[in-house]
Design a protein around this nucleic acid. Structure first.
Lengths: 190, 190
DNA sequence: ACCTGAACACCGTTCAAGT
DNA sequence: ACCTGAACACCGTTCAAGT
């Protein structure tokens, strides 16, 4: 049976999750899928295009939340950000991959659309909503990136030494600060 | 005269500024400096180590601001962030390089220390200041990264088409939101 | 339609050996 | 102390040719 684009994307997600972006080469994927490198280029135009699909797949596990009322919108936003974080935090270099996808094909990332919608519902003026989302997404991806660089660096030393607690506290703190700065009442810490 | 580590770092900053991280290879630097590749590894332990030095050099142009009074601290923070932004915005992939340096050798980046200091002066509790800095730095580097990916993508199409205005407005908006969320009075837009 | 084989133009890092 | 020469083990992308 012929190779499909889906199999290719799945293989890429697998390698990324287990070994990180540095090991995610077209040649390695070809080896893993028992084809020649050139075969991959029949299914995707470039490695970049493949990574955009990988990014979308990483967010597949994040369910679309119910549309909240204005009072509940800030809590929904915080909850959605937490979901995005937990979908990405265990995948090495996921922040980098997401950033690429965001600038190459933002419409392929559904949850980012929801975020904008909820900000509007929460009362952020139309003109500011896109800015506001940027601040939140920068915080999300930034937090993930520094967590993962910390993990990567501590890989040499004793394992399991990265304080997950600190990272999570820092993340939640940031979300609260930003929502508060947007003049949305910040949700209680869950 | 023998090659120095400084010359190596300067050459790296040059290539990064002109051509970006993808073109910043050890082999290219060697060519540019008229030595064999191996020679570079007498001066630096690895490419990563070189990039940490590059990151520090990129911030050399940012002067240490005077230590502000508590009332002026929020304005100093906003001003410092603007300075950092303008030192980095024109250098392709600078956000990526900074993120690496931050996690590998944070103490090599003086302005990050100043930021922490000013947050304290502004009245952010000791326990929160590091979190707060993270939020601000995530915003700074995130804004720069998305600006630069936009520039990179539009390089194929008509040039000069990236709305610098929008990016700057988004950046300032974010800084205001965060400072306000920290319960510091946000400074007037300068 | 889908893939192979082979090439092109590259990488980072190491290290014996030279001066 | 500082560098060369050469090797090792890789990259992404293209494309004629095969089935």
């Amino acid at each position: 049976m012929a190779l499909t684009r889906e199999q290719l994307v799945d293989a890429a997600v697998g390698v990324l999750s287990e070994f990180g972006l540095a090991d995610l080469s077209m040649r390695r994927l070809a080896r893993e899928l028992d084809v020649q490198v050139g075969a991959l280029y029949w299914h995707v135009k470039s490695k970049q295009e493949l990574l955009v699909d990988v990014a979308a797949k990483l967010l597949d596990s994040v369910p679309r939340p119910n549309v909240p009322t204005p009072e509940l919108a800030p809590m929904s936003i915080a909850a959605l950000l937490r979901q995005l974080r937990s979908a990405l935090i265990a995948v090495p270099d996921s922040a980098e991959v997401m950033q690429l996808a965001q600038s190459m094909r933002p419409e392929s990332l559904d949850p980012m659309g929801w975020l904008l919608e909820f900000l509007s519902i929460a009362g952020v003026p139309e003109a500011d909503a896109t800015y506001a989302r940027h601040v939140l997404v920068n915080h999300l991806l930034g937090s993930i990136a520094s967590h993962q660089e910390a993990v990567a660096l501590s890989a040499g030393t004793e394992p399991g030494t990265v304080s997950t607690e600190w990272e999570e506290a820092a993340f939640d703190y940031g979300v609260r600060v930003i929502l508060q700065g947007l003049a949305l009442e910040h949700p209680p810490v869950v």
